[in-house]
Structure formats: C-alpha cells, structure tokens
Amino acid sequence: MTDSVPARAGKRERLADAAARVFHEQGVEKTTIADIARVAEVPVGNVYYYFKTKDQLVQAAIGAHARTLREVLDELERQEAPGDRLRALVRGWVEQRETAVQFGCPSGTLATELDKRADGLDVELATVMRELLAWIEAQFAAMGRADAAELAVALLASYQGISLLTNTFRDPGLMATEGRRLVGWIDSLEESVAV
C-alpha cells in the first residue's frame, strides 16, 4: 500500500481519496479509521471532525471514485473521435494492470463488497458506474452504432471480468491481451459502420 495521498487537496478530500485507496487495497471491513488517517497524513482525531462514522467515509470514497471518473472522462474527451476515446479508455485500463493484479478494479471490488451490506451504499456506487456506462454508450452511439447500449455493457463487462481474472491469477498479461482484443474489436466496429 502506498503511504500517503498527495497533500495537494484539503483534508476532507485527502481523507476521501485515502479512504478510496485503502478500501480498495484492504477492503472496507478490514480498514480502520487509523489506516485512512495515516494514508491521508491527518491525525486520527481530526478524521472525526469531517466524518463521524466509517459509513460516511465509505460515502466519501464513493465520491472520490466519482471525481476520479469525471477527471478520466474529461481527459478522454480531448480525443477527437469516439473510437479514439474508447481505445484510450481501454489503454488506460491496461496501464492499471499491476494494480488489478494486486487488488482488482477499484470500483468493481468496492461494488462487490458493498453489495453484501444492506445500507444502500451499493446503490450510490452503482450510480457512479452507470455514469461510466452511459459515457461508453454515448461513444458507441456517436460512432453510429444502433446497438450502442449493448456494446457499452459488453465493453464494461469485459473490463470487469478481466480485472477479476487478472487479480485471481495474478497475471497482468491477461489484461494486456484482453486490452489488445478490445482495441481490435473497437476497430472492427468502426469499420463495419464505415462500410
């Protein structure tokens, strides 16, 4: 686990980012407030000023996932064409393969863990994941694909599945191979629309 979150942000945001990181690396149930405080470089007592409960930290971590997703999507939007944006998304996933080897997908592993609870936090995370799914669908629609919704689910499901397998088998090569396949798939979808 990395030791700290960059001090660029205020304490509340640092705690949220640290919570997202530590929950990903250790799981919600195994994580203590002290673990999060250490990574955020905030005294443990100060955590309670911002977050009264661990569940509030989980909500903050979900917010950190949403912020990160928006930053990634903003960066991807700099690509000119929707196919280029999708290929860049896949390449970004592949670049994170060593993290997937150790901990799986940040959002996927948190979603799996939160699904076992009955507090509704899984629904909050699902909203973040729906935002990514809607963005992917919009890219396929911009490519002229009438089946954009189905293609979006297929792409996100491929990523979630390969993240799980990469983590299970501790093999980053699996994600690299799947990334190449997905880029080729996106290429073929573009070509079929152009014909």
Rank of each mutant, 00 (worst) to 15 (best):
V123E: 10
A157H: 08
M129N: 11
R67V: 02
D115I: 02
G173K: 07
R85D: 10
W135I: 03
A19T: 08
W135H: 05
G184A: 12
A66R: 13
E98M: 14
R130D: 14
T53V: 10
K116V: 03
L121M: 12
V28C: 14
A126M: 09
E29D: 08
R91T: 07
E124S: 15
I33N: 00
E41M: 05
R145C: 12
A111K: 08
S188M: 08
P82W: 08
T2P: 01
T127Q: 09
E191D: 07
L125F: 03
G108P: 04
P6Y: 01
A146I: 08
T32V: 02
V39R: 02
E113C: 06
R117D: 06
E124W: 01
G27C: 11
V42Q: 06
Q96L: 12
R117L: 11
E29W: 01
G144K: 00
C105T: 02
L73V: 14
G179S: 07
A194E: 12
A142V: 03
P106Y: 07
G108V: 05
I162Y: 06
L57F: 07
E190Q: 15
A34V: 10
G179N: 09
R14V: 10
S4Q: 10
R145E: 13
V195A: 04
A154K: 12
K30F: 05
L89W: 15
A118K: 11
A88M: 02
R145L: 09
L164M: 11
R130K: 13
L15C: 11
V193N: 00
I186S: 06
Q96R: 12
D187N: 11
L133H: 11
G27W: 09
A61H: 09
G104I: 09
A37M: 08
D122M: 01
L86V: 12
V39G: 00
V153G: 01
R87W: 02
E131F: 04
T177F: 11
D147E: 15
D147M: 14
E25S: 10
A16L: 02
A141E: 13
T53E: 08
D147S: 15
R85I: 06
T177Y: 10
S4N: 10
T68A: 14
A111I: 02
Y48L: 13
E75T: 13
D115G: 13
E41C: 06
S158I: 05
R170C: 14
G108Y: 04
R14H: 09
R8W: 14
Q139T: 07
A142R: 15
I186N: 01
S188N: 05
D147V: 12
V58L: 08
D147K: 11
S107L: 13
F169H: 15
A141C: 00
L76R: 01
E113A: 08
T99I: 09
E124V: 09
E124F: 09
V58A: 06
T112E: 13
E131W: 05
